[in-house]
Design a protein around this nucleic acid. Sequence first.
DNA 1: CAATTCTATTTACAAATGATAAGAAATCAA
DNA 2: TTGATTTCTTATCATTTGTAAATAGAATTG
Lengths: 176, 176
Amino acid sequence: MNNHTKIFGEASTILEIKKKEIILEMGEVENYLSFIIKGSVVIITYHNGNEICIGFSIENSFFSSYVSFLTRKSSQYQVVALEDTTIERIDFESLQVGYSLSAYHQEKGRKIAEQLYIKGSQRAFSLITKTAEERYLEFIETYPNLLQRIPLKYVASYLGVTPVSLSRIRNKIAKH
Amino acid sequence: MNNHTKIFGEASTILEIKKKEIILEMGEVENYLSFIIKGSVVIITYHNGNEICIGFSIENSFFSSYVSFLTRKSSQYQVVALEDTTIERIDFESLQVGYSLSAYHQEKGRKIAEQLYIKGSQRAFSLITKTAEERYLEFIETYPNLLQRIPLKYVASYLGVTPVSLSRIRNKIAKH
DNA sequence: CAATTCTATTTACAAATGATAAGAAATCAA
DNA sequence: TTGATTTCTTATCATTTGTAAATAGAATTG
């Protein structure tokens, strides 16, 4: 990963994270906007004792507990590395300094917000319009081979179903 | 509405829309980012012949078929006025010109994207973590008295259930 | 390598939601 | 206002999904 050109410029830092390492705890304020150079992370929350997967990010995409980052309030989510992962990240203050320096940085910040909006919006669209089975097939399209890289239980809660239900869906599809 | 200070400045226009009027057709490219001065709009799509409500916007909030607006691709959504509505809106080109003129405009654009992200993200969170009943109660909290202003069927599909199911939920709540 | 822990599947039953149809209530338009 | 249309509720039955428990399979750790 030596040929990675920094996304955020000088103010950012490169970080290596081991698999299963917690990048952000629930309740903390998210202080970073991050870009994945290699690996994958999952954003999780807990509800009635169940682990619920809010979203994944893989190489060449941004992640953050972004609402916490934007609002400076404590995060509803935990962020965990699913594999050994390398990220580039910039802290909130440095980013604001960047914004204040130039329209270029403002534009970059806007485009990241827009990109994250598009991703989140497609998620909500799927949850509303599609069945669990359709969402599973869509997941496979969107994240080819991620299925082989991470535990199924995350995929299940990401799709909004239990692991048991996902198992039934996979079984049904396999029978075609 | 004469005391409305323009959000987008000179390049924007004020528009009055009658109830039930279609502001954007499905398949068209969204050319505006809009701010509601008075009234409400609903963003709709159709799936398997069913009308599905993607989201509402009410006075003092922004709306757009935003993914279409950002990507310049045809809109998956229709936008309709739920009541007689007054909006201020700016077209894509003018907004880009604004962006190119100053960091101030870039910042404004970024903040709108962030605000829309936060709204969308809370939606997905609710769909994943909450039951239909909980989402209904949350809806009432988020949009007090909107229930009295618009047809229930939109609320149902917004919550991700059928009108029949919503009716059962309301019945159950009323019995407490 | 063995033991332990974590994941995934399967089954049986319960609960929630969907589909359809019928009728009541509300809204709209002439 | 009156009739027509749209919206909302209720009932029935089918389907999906959830819960719990048992088991099998993987992965991890010492």
